[in-house]
């Protein structure tokens, strides 16, 4: 109990600091009274988008690690991340044409990419469920997810090469691919907040099943868990969470893999305690990395996904070493 208070106290304190830092850091000058409110609003939106995306990815990470009892699983393994990324890329490619043709006249132009990403995630999810239909073997899911991801990545690379015809479009597609939360608006925050609340609520509802599922399919099944249904819905919610994250923040690497590992030693492995803590920690991690992108370079924007990867990979190795020393393995 004491440990729980300490964890939440630390998380909330650090999150407060990260949010404050995020509001304080930026290219605009807060001394300019006429623009101060605007700058703060922009930074608040960006912070909310980053926090939501980080939380989504971290919760999705916990889901897949439990569903596949694989500590190396990240949300990307079910293919939804790659699908959402491809959807966003295609929306960027086709978006200019759609806007010019007035097809998207009723739609806020800034919503084209998120909508493309969500469509991509849903497409990836449907394809995955169609491929593994009827099979209860996690290996099939992992293989199908891997194949779909590879396919989407190849098509995405082709889209990127097509975009090179227009130099700015090529930059934009690449920038989306590498992740970032600059210039996000209320629409983006609404998307990620919806995905997060739905995904987190669903994950909390499935939490007891996920706990039992850590003992493997057979034991969980005899203890009363509907393994196939749990896994199917777990995959769906993972897709919703990671699709929502990609829709507002592009492809942000490593969050879903590392945050659950970093939090388990403090929150434990039981999902009702783990999930909320992981959500806050994921948000905290991405907001901190986003502040870092703003501090490192004001002009040549450092992609968020690169920073999360640069910080995430060494941190992951550190955690891995630590857990080896403790002789523990976190499923």
């Amino acid at each position: 109990m004491k440990r729980t208070y300490a964890l939440w106290g630390t998380l909330l304190l650090l999150s407060g600091a990260a949010v404050a830092g995020s509001l304080y850091t930026g290219a605009g000058d807060l001394g300019d009274e006429s623009l101060r409110a605007t700058f703060l609003r922009l930074r608040a939106l960006r912070t909310a988008a980053g926090f939501g995306a980080g939380a989504c990815l971290a919760v999705a990470g916990v889901l897949v690690q439990a569903l596949f009892r694989n500590p190396l699983a990240g949300p990307s393994i079910v293919g939804a991340t790659a699908g959402a990324t491809l959807g966003g890329q295609l929306a960027l490619l086709g978006g200019q044409g759609l806007i010019a043709a007035g097809v998207a006249a009723r739609l806020a132009p800034e919503m084209l990419v998120p909508i493309g990403a969500i469509a991509g995630a849903l497409f990836a999810l449907s394809a995955l469920l169609l491929i593994v239909r009827g099979s209860n073997d996690p290996t099939h899911v992992l293989l199908a997810g891997f194949l779909l991801s590879s396919l989407f990545l190849s098509i995405g690379a082709f889209a990127l090469s097509l975009a090179q015809d227009t130099w700015e479009l090529g930059r934009a597609v690449l920038s989306f691919t590498l992740g970032g939360v600059s210039g996000r608006g209320p629409g983006h925050v609404a998307i990620v907040a919806t995905a997060l609340s739905a995904g987190l609520a669903a994950a909390m509802l499935w939490a007891p099943s996920l706990d039992v599922l850590l003992s493997g399919d057979d034991e969980a099944s005899t203890l009363g868990v509907d393994v196939a249904t749990t896994r199917r819905w777990g995959i769906v919610w993972t897709a919703v969470l990671s699709g929502g994250a990609v829709a507002v923040a592009g492809n942000v690497a490593f969050v879903g893999l590392i945050v659950p590992h970093a939090i388990r030693p403090f929150a434990g492995v039981m999902h009702r305690r783990l999930l909320p803590a992981v959500a806050v920690a994921g948000g905290l991690f991405v907001v901190t990395c986003d502040v870092a992108t703003r501090l490192i370079s004001v002009k040549a924007n450092m992609p968020l996904g690169v920073i999360t990867g640069l910080i995430g990979a060494p941190l992951f190795l550190l955690l891995l070493r630590r857990s080896q020393l403790l002789g523990e393995s976190h499923g």
Binding site: A27, T38, F39, E168, R171, S182, K299, N301
Partner: peptide
């Protein structure tokens, strides 16, 4: 600024 900068809204507003 020189060459082809990437802006964020804050820079444009400034």
């Amino acid at each position: 600024y020189s060459d082809w900068p990437e802006y964020n809204a804050e820079e444009v507003l400034t």
